[in-house]
Each structure stands twice: as structure tokens, then as C-alpha cells.
């Protein structure tokens, strides 16, 4: 069972503001899904390796060569919040 307080905590971890009024409704809907997930407890997975992805690839490397990159103005074109070639955001500390 996920509690109202846990919903607010997970919301903070995920950087999604959830106010106290909403957290009850979230807890109810999330719990019905978590109940359903609980059915995996029935499956015996002792010694079964996890599958992270199905492609038969381990490490993919490329040569460490400088190639052309996207022009800075294109990278910054989708925001009004920029200054001297940088993204501008509120203080983080």
C-alpha cells in the first residue's frame, strides 16, 4: 500500500508537485495498479536472470573522432530563457 505521504514524497523525487488535496486520489489509483503488480509474487524467479533489453548487443563503441555538431542557435531555438549561448534557469541551490 502506498500512503498519501509516500505519494507526496515520490512526487518530490520525480519533481512533480502534488498538493495535499490531490494525494488521496493519486494514492487510490496507484494502489489499484500496485495491487495488480503484486500478482508477480506468484512467479518463481529464483535464479532467473533479468532481461534489460532483448538486443544481442553488449557494448557499442565508436571512434573518438570530432564530428560536426548542431549549431548553437539551433540548440537554443526552443527557449526564450537563454543568455550568452547558455540556457538560463532559476538558481538551483
Amino acid at each position: 500500500m502506498i500512503t498519501k505521504e509516500e505519494v507526496e514524497h515520490v512526487g518530490w523525487l520525480a519533481r512533480i508537485e502534488i498538493d495535499a488535496k490531490e494525494s488521496d486520489a493519486y494514492a487510490e489509483k496507484l494502489n489499484s495498479v500496485l495491487d495488480y503488480f503484486g500478482q508477480l509474487d506468484e512467479v518463481d524467479t529464483e535464479g532467473v536472470k533479468p532481461t534489460y533489453h532483448v538486443a544481442d548487443i553488449v557494448n557499442v563503441f565508436r571512434k573518438d573522432e570530432v564530428t560536426e555538431s548542431m549549431p548553437q542557435e539551433d540548440v537554443l531555438a526552443n527557449t526564450e530563457h537563454k543568455q550568452e549561448g547558455n540556457f538560463k534557469a532559476p538558481k538551483i541551490m
Binding site: I2, E6, V7, V10, G11, W12, L13, A14, R15, I16, E17, I18, Y26, K29, L30, V33, L34, A89, P90, K91, I92
Partner: peptide, 27 residues
Amino acid sequence: NWHVMASKTRAEGFGPEVKRRILLGTY
């Protein structure tokens, strides 16, 4: 503050199902 900006942006910018899935995934 960046954290407040990001948390509000995501609260207002994502719809309910997307938020539910992010919350469940984070959990």
C-alpha cells in the same frame, strides 16, 4: 528556485496518466 520551477512545470505540463506512470515508475 529550479526545483520549484521544474516541479510546477511538470505538474502543470503533464496530463494525469503521464503523471501516474512517472510516479509509479519512480516508486
